[in-house]
Amino acid sequence: KKKPLTQEQLEDARRLKAIYEKKKNELGLSQESVADKMGMGQSGVGALFNGINALNAYNAALLAKILKVSVEEFSP
């Protein structure tokens, strides 16, 4: 059984999803295209955005690059 995410991890996910929602049209992104760039399925990206799975440093760095932001913008 997976450990529930901490409040901090949930807040990171909320900020990440908000940045994605704000930038997806400008950058021409969908959850599917983000998933392709990350080498995972769309459901995996959804789980990161919705605070189901915790972000690790690798995925955080990859998402920051895809969204053209710094990791600190969603994970201070």
Rank of each mutant, 00 (worst) to 15 (best):
E26D: 10
Q42W: 13
L67H: 05
A47R: 12
N50Q: 09
G39Y: 04
L62S: 11
L62Y: 06
R15P: 01
K1W: 08
N25C: 12
E72W: 11
R14P: 00
A35W: 02
K23Q: 05
L27G: 05
I19C: 08
L10G: 05
E32F: 05
G41E: 15
A64L: 00
K1N: 15
A35V: 02
V71N: 05
N25S: 13
D36I: 14
A60Y: 04
A35E: 03
A47I: 01
S43I: 11
A54K: 08
L27K: 04
A60W: 00
L5T: 07
E26L: 11
K22M: 12
K1M: 12
G28A: 10
S75C: 09
A47W: 01
G39S: 09
N56F: 02
L5P: 08
K2M: 14
E32Q: 14
A57H: 14
A61Q: 14
L55V: 04
P4E: 14
V69A: 03
N25L: 12
S30D: 12
S43N: 12
I19V: 08
A54M: 07
K2F: 13
L62P: 05
A54V: 06
Q31F: 13
E72A: 15
L55Q: 05
M40G: 05
L63S: 06
E11C: 11
A54P: 15
G51H: 00
Q9R: 03
E8V: 04
L67G: 09
S70H: 10
D36A: 15
A64E: 02
R14I: 08
D12Y: 03
V45H: 04
K24Q: 06
L10F: 10
K37F: 11
N53I: 14
S43M: 10
A35L: 02
P76I: 02
R14G: 09
G41V: 13
I19A: 02
K65Q: 11
A13N: 05
G28K: 11
L62R: 14
I66Q: 08
L10S: 08
K24C: 07
V69D: 08
I52K: 13
S43K: 14
E21D: 12
D36H: 14
K17Y: 07
M38K: 01
K24N: 00
K37L: 13
L48A: 02
V45I: 10
A13T: 01
V34Y: 01
K65Y: 00
T6I: 02
A35G: 10
E32Y: 06
N53V: 15
A57W: 10
G44R: 12
K1T: 11
K24F: 05
L16M: 03
K1I: 12
Q31V: 13
G51I: 00
K37I: 12
S70N: 14
L27Q: 07
V71E: 08
R14V: 09
L29T: 01
I52Q: 14
A60T: 05
V71D: 06
L63C: 06
K22H: 10
L55H: 02
R15S: 00
L67V: 02
N25Y: 12
A47K: 15
E32R: 13
A18E: 12
I52A: 11
E32P: 06
F49C: 07
V34A: 04
E11W: 00
S75A: 13
D12G: 06
G44F: 10
K24M: 06
L27D: 04
G46Y: 15
K65G: 08
K2P: 08
N56Q: 05
V34I: 15
K65H: 10
N59M: 06
E21I: 09
N56S: 12
D12T: 12
E72Y: 10
E32I: 09
K65T: 07
K68R: 11
E21P: 00
R14C: 09
S33N: 09
R14M: 11
R14K: 13
L10T: 10
Q42L: 14
S70W: 00
E72C: 12
L48R: 05
K24E: 02
P4S: 14
F74A: 03
E26P: 04
D36G: 10
G41A: 15
G46N: 15
E21F: 09
I19K: 05
E72H: 14
G28E: 08
Q42M: 15
L27F: 03
L29Q: 04
L62A: 14
L63T: 09
L48P: 05
K23S: 02
L5R: 03
K1P: 01
S70K: 15
R14D: 07
A64M: 00
E72Q: 12
N59T: 15
Y58V: 14
G46C: 15
L5E: 08
N50E: 12
K23N: 03
E72K: 12
S30A: 05
L27Y: 05
Q9V: 00
E21L: 13
K37W: 09
P4D: 12
N56G: 05
P4C: 14
K1R: 08
Y58L: 10
N50D: 12
G44A: 15
V45A: 04
A61L: 09
A60M: 02
L29C: 03
K22V: 07
K37G: 08
L27R: 03
G51L: 00
A60G: 02
E21V: 09
K68G: 12
G44P: 03
R15Q: 02
D36C: 13
G51A: 01
G51K: 01
G39H: 10
R15G: 00
E73K: 08
N50P: 03
A18D: 12
K2C: 06
A57I: 10
A60I: 00
I66D: 09
A61M: 10
I66H: 09
I19W: 00
N50M: 05
L5Q: 06
A13G: 05
I19R: 03
G28H: 11
L16T: 04
V71F: 00
S43W: 05
V45L: 12
Y58T: 15
P4A: 15
S30Y: 00
L27T: 07
E32D: 11
K24D: 03
L67P: 10
N25K: 15
K65F: 00
A64C: 04
Q9F: 00
A61G: 13
I66N: 10
Y58A: 14
A64Q: 04
L63Y: 02
L10E: 10
A60P: 02
I52D: 13
L27A: 04
V34R: 01
E21S: 08
K68D: 13
S33A: 13
G51C: 00
A18C: 08
G46T: 15
N53R: 13
L67Q: 09
D12N: 05
K37N: 07
K1S: 10
A35R: 02
F49H: 04
A57P: 14
V45M: 06
M38V: 06
N59E: 11
S33F: 08
V34S: 02
S43L: 10
S33V: 14
D36T: 13
N25D: 15
A61V: 09
L48W: 04
T6W: 00
V69W: 01
S33Y: 14
S43T: 12
K22R: 14
Q9M: 03
A61T: 12
L10Q: 12
Q42T: 15
K24I: 01
S75M: 06
E8M: 08
R15K: 08
A60R: 04
E21Y: 09
Y20I: 07
A57M: 12
D12H: 02
N59C: 08
T6E: 07
A13H: 03
P76V: 06
A54D: 05
L55M: 10
Q42S: 15
N25M: 13
Y20E: 03
A57T: 12
A13Q: 06
A60H: 02
S75P: 07
A18M: 12
N50W: 02
M38D: 03
L62K: 15
G46A: 15
I19M: 05
G44K: 14
R14W: 08
F49E: 06
L10K: 14
K24Y: 08
L5K: 02
G51M: 00
A47Q: 11
K22W: 03
Q31S: 11
E11A: 14
G28M: 09
G46P: 07
K37V: 10
P4W: 12
L29A: 03
Q31W: 15
N56L: 00
A64K: 05
S30Q: 05
I19Y: 02
Q31K: 12
K23I: 00
